[in-house]
Design a protein around this nucleic acid. Structure first.
Lengths: 343, 343
DNA sequence: TTCTCTACTGTGAACGCTCACAGAAGCATG
DNA sequence: CATGCTTCTGTGAGCGTTCACAGTAGAGAA
């Protein structure tokens, strides 16, 4: 080896080189690469040795050209961009999906559709077949992108329940309603009866379901639902602060509040502190998500854990199944009540 | 058009279809696609019309196969995984790079090398030529991945100054030293003289430079450097809390503290509050980064803004230049003092 | 032996594009 | 009229794979 390797990249070995080294044909190497059926053990071994020796790595472009698959998937974010920063859940979802895909040796392409222009470019990219499927994150529910992709025949899994139920697109979501029920039951078990709620956006299924769970448990328990105790937010910290403030004005002796996200709950804590309420003594606070915000706030938040690791795993599993020809599927995962200091 | 399009995806048009519709040859279409030199205006127009009519989108796999370029770049994260969550800067960097690349119509592949196994797989992927270049995020400085990539001849831009100066790898970083100087000057201008510091990890250039700036300004101002007022952290919230606590034990009448990251500064606020110090009356607190943490904490943090939007833009610019054959380059960007309530 | 079946292997074609090259057409110059 | 130059256009080859097909060898059955 006297070849210089400083500077430019050396031309990588091809399947042909491997075949030559192994003393077999391209076809045999290809078969070994794709599962090894109908290959003699001797050839199998020779090819593997040659691959190790040459450092061969398959050229995915050449493969894709003929198979028509790209063997990569897109992670598409259609949130308005600022949300990306405020939402602590996005991070963990992204990481989970990246790793779940890595296990299948599938690269993840990150796509952020902030502007209309970007949206168009990305749609063109996707529908041209440059990804085999799309993981879609968009709580923004009226999003036409899901339907567009579905109509284009692109395998798709959405994170969170989509608004239109008839739309027949796969999704993976936590059981919002059940989580809300658990939290409100917990608050009632503490003896609280004037339980407020700061909801999520009510044009999203998540927002609606958490509110529904809240109402359901109160009704079950014989506590009358007081509309003054319900105010809606948009998952942002600021809206949680404003919402809790409004609740206190309306019902000064509120003794518990269920806030539909941890970030909003952080805001609520601020409002409560400003109003001189002690948490949890005067007002118990329950959050939702179990994001980083829950442990960072003071006091640490009792919350409903969304199983983001499982959600990302399921999203990938369902997407790959769909790419493999299976029908769209909906997966609802159980949540878990996490007790901390705010209740 | 009686062709059904329910279910599977229709085979997309090729350059051949466009050529036929436009009444020209493949070569001419290809020339139009790649800049349009040596093409008559008439042909130019005919081809563009045909592209619009057919909805043609170039097949990147076929193109890559022949050009040897992949026209995609990798965003590689070699932090241990938990950091991804704690670091609010990661998000904004990732988004910035995605969008800067989108402007060049280049997809971004997200790669997370948490385990040794993942690291190996990713290196194989990269060195096989499946990306044209790599944006590397790794404050973890002894990271061999940068040198490995450089030795493999892969264009590379690192975020933040790398440790070994002779390593000849491109990087883009904020001017840590100058930022630190600004902050400490600001603290001194408030009349504070017992200025503590919680540093970043001192095996990273960022950590070292911020400390250097601190010492420099104090010396300049004739304030003796008191080693009891210096304690090191690791950018995590917890280490900021512990660090500030230790400083207070050693120097109870400390009247200001410069904390090398906003996240640590948040922790420091907690420690100060617990120790009964008012911020900023008793102790002025300065952070670094201007991350979300700075505005979320109470009081909001005076901090040094790192221009992340410019950093990501520059990273992409330098990387593309390097892919285009230019030499590695180092870019240092100016920081900015942001005044808020903590000083 | 001959036939069939199974297990395995090699070969040519094709995927959709770019690139190098050859040539055509137009125009100015000798 | 030949020559050269510039501008434009078409053609064939080839990038590294997979896939369909044809073929070989060996085992077992008739």
């Amino acid at each position: 080896m006297t070849m210089s390797n400083t500077g430019g990249r050396r031309k990588p070995p091809t399947i042909h080189d491997v075949a030559r080294v192994a003393g077999v044909s391209r076809g045999t190497v290809s078969r070994v690469l794709n599962g090894g059926h109908y290959v003699s053990p001797a050839a199998q071994e020779a090819v593997n040795a040659a691959i190790r020796k040459t450092g061969y790595v398959v050229n995915r472009h050449a493969r894709s050209l003929i198979t028509g698959r790209s063997d990569s998937i897109g992670f598409l974010l259609t949130e308005p961009q600022e949300k990306l920063f405020e939402d602590p859940n996005f991070n963990v979802l992204l990481r989970g999906c990246t790793q779940a895909l890595a296990a299948h040796d599938i690269p993840l392409l990150l796509m952020v559709a902030g502007t209309e222009d970007e949206r168009r470019r990305i749609m063109r990219y996707i529908t041209a077949g440059h990804v085999d499927g799309v993981l879609l994150v968009s709580s923004h529910s009226g999003d036409p992108v899901a339907e567009q992709l579905r109509d284009a025949g692109v395998p798709l899994v959405q994170c969170g329940k989509p608004m239109g139920l008839g739309s027949k697109v796969s999704y993976v979501a936590a059981d919002d309603r059940d989580g809300a029920r658990d939290m409100v039951r917990h608050l009632l078990s503490l003896g609280r009866r004037r339980v407020g709620m700061v909801t999520g956006p009510l044009d999203t299924p998540g927002g609606v379901d958490r509110l529904a769970g809240y109402k359901e448990v109160l009704t079950e328990a014989g506590v009358e639902i007081d509309e003054r105790l319900i105010v809606s937010g948009d998952y942002s910290r600021a809206s949680g602060e404003a919402g809790a403030g409004r609740l206190l004005e309306r019902v000064p002796d509120m003794d518990a509040v269920f806030v539909a996200s941890d970030l909003m709950a952080q805001g609520a804590l601020t409002a409560l502190r400003r109003a001189g309420r002690r948490v949890p003594e005067d007002v118990a606070v329950g959050g939702f998500d179990d994001s980083a915000a829950a442990t960072e706030s003071v006091p640490a938040l009792t919350t409903i854990r969304q199983p983001y690791d499982r959600i990302s795993n399921e999203m990938v599993r369902v997407l790959l199944a769909q790419i493999g020809g299976e029908d769209p599927a909906a997966v609802i995962l159980p949540t878990e009540l996490v007790l901390r200091d705010s209740t």
